[in-house]
Computed example of a mutant assay.
Amino acid sequence: MITLKNQYLTVQVNEFGAELTSVKSEDGAEYIWQADPAYWKRHAPILFPIVGRLKDNQYVYQGKDYHMTQHGFARDNQFQVTNQSQTAVTLVLTQNAQTLAKYPFNFELKVNFELKEHELAVHFTVTNPDDNELLFSLGAHPGFNVPFAGVGDFTDYFIRVAPKKVYRRIPLKPPYSDPEDPQELDFTKPLQLQHELFKDDALVLDLKDQETTVMLANSHDDHGVALSLSKAPYVGIWSPSPKQAPFICIEPWWGLADTVNATGQLADKFAVNRLTGKQRFDAGYQISFF
C-alpha cells in the first residue's frame, strides 16, 4: 500500500488496480468508501479498456471473438510503481498474457496521483506502443462515504453541478446505454440524494467535454468533495439501488457501456477512443476535499 501525505490529507493507493483506497483529513474524516462487500467491494476502481458492460460480455475484433467482463481488467491487475515521492506516485500497467487473451492490443496505462494542499489530482496516460490502431475506453469510479464523518444520513446530502444548467442525460437500460433516447436532468439547483434516484442504475450526464465540477456536500457540516473535469465527455453518478448503501460514486468516463443496439464489433463501439501508432491519450480529474 502506498501512502501520500501533506499537512491536510493522508492518501492511500493500492498497487493492485492502482486503486485509491483512502483519503483522510487532518481531523480524521474518511472520504473514500471502505469497500464493505455487503454493498460494494471496491473503493475507486479504474475502468479500462472498457467502461460498463459489453453486449453478452463479448466483442468481435478483426473477425475473432473476445470475452471481457464489466469495466475491463485494469482493476484486477498489479500495477508497477515507476516514480514516488511524499506527495505523488506514478503507477503503470502494460499488456501481459492474460490481458492479450481478452484484448489483443499492446498498451501502456499510466496513472499519476498527486497531492496539492486540499486537492488530489489524478492523471491518466494511455500510450499506443505499436503501429496498429489502439481502441479503448477509460473511466474512474471513486466512491465517497455518505456520511463522511458520521454526521447525518444519505438523504442529508446533495449533488451540485457547475455550470448550473439542464444537462442531457444518457439513460441506461441496464446494463446498456441508450444515447439515442436522451433525457434531461435539471442541475440548475442542487439534487437531494434519494436511493430511488438510482433505480435504473447511474445518472449519466453528457458533458460534451465542457469543464465541469460535481460537488457532494451536506446540510449538517462543512465536509464535502468537489470533483472537477476539464475534458471528459461523460460523468456517471451512482449508488447501488435498491440497497440502502451509505456511499455515492462520481465517475468521470471517456467511454460508455455498449449501446442497446451495439453490433458487437469493437471497431463500431459507440464513444470508443482511437490511438494511431505511437500516439498517446491524456485525461484526468481533480478532487478537492473540504
Rank of each mutant, 00 (worst) to 15 (best):
P37H: 10
K173R: 15
Q95P: 01
A202T: 11
S219C: 12
L47G: 05
I250A: 02
Q86P: 00
N128T: 05
F290M: 08
P175C: 05
I237F: 01
F16C: 06
T90F: 09
M215E: 13
S241R: 08
Q286G: 08
P175K: 12
Y103D: 12
V122I: 14
A29C: 13
Q183M: 06
V13S: 06
A44S: 15
T259E: 10
D222R: 10
H195M: 00
L109D: 04
Y176G: 09
A74S: 10
H223L: 15
L256H: 05
A217F: 14
P242M: 03
Y8D: 10
L275W: 03
L185P: 01
I46W: 03
G277P: 03
Y234V: 14
L134E: 01
F48W: 01
T3P: 02
D27N: 15
H118V: 00
R42P: 04
K41W: 04
Q192P: 02
A74P: 11
K164P: 03
H223R: 14
R53G: 05
L256W: 00
P163Q: 04
E211N: 01
H67N: 05
P233Q: 09
D186V: 12
A44Y: 00
G277H: 08
P129F: 02
L275K: 04
K189E: 13
L205A: 10
V51P: 04
A149V: 03
E117L: 14
E30P: 01
L172W: 06
E117T: 08
I287L: 10
